[in-house]
Amino acid sequence: MKKCFFITFLLIFTIGTGLHAPSIVEGKVYKTKDDALKEVFPDADAVEKINVFLGKEEQKKIEAMAKSKLESRIFTFYAGRKGNTIAGYAVFGSHVVRTKQEVYMVVINPDSSIRQVEILAFYEPEEYLPSKRWFQRFAGKILDNELWPRRGIIAVTGATLSVNGITQEIRKVLAVFKIMVIKEG
């Protein structure tokens, strides 16, 4: 019985490794910034860079709006332009999950609602990363009191640090976008 188990397992592992080893393309960097921009603005005539530098006062205002501390006062937004209209804005950033980083992209509609959130690189073990479907749930959300874990954002067992961290990052970039890019509030 036991020998059968060992042989079966060894067979599964050997065949499995053989089948899967050549397809090791799912490294921790899933997508580059340039590729991500091409994907989110496929028809854009141009992708314009908007550099945002925050003064002390603006920093305070944004922190109050996001209810989170900013670690950086420099942000770069990418506006996808088609003719005279802006299709949307993308912003990239990173934060530490446990001791390693995750790199994200947030795509924002011109009305400052979220269009898309995507993880471009994840350096912690992937079991700490919430599912793609979980990230899809950010679509349409705006910066309000629902944009918190256990409110509008579902908590994920085993990915607490990632869930809390990314939600906080999204609140920050939305606040920067509102105050500095579309000059709202």
Binding site: V29, K31, K33, S72, F92, S94, V103, A121
Partner: peptide, 12 residues
């Protein structure tokens, strides 16, 4: 700064 923040993701 972007390279520092994003690491390999910022590499073209």
């Amino acid at each position: 700064i972007e390279k520092l923040k994003l690491g390999a993701v910022a590499e073209p």
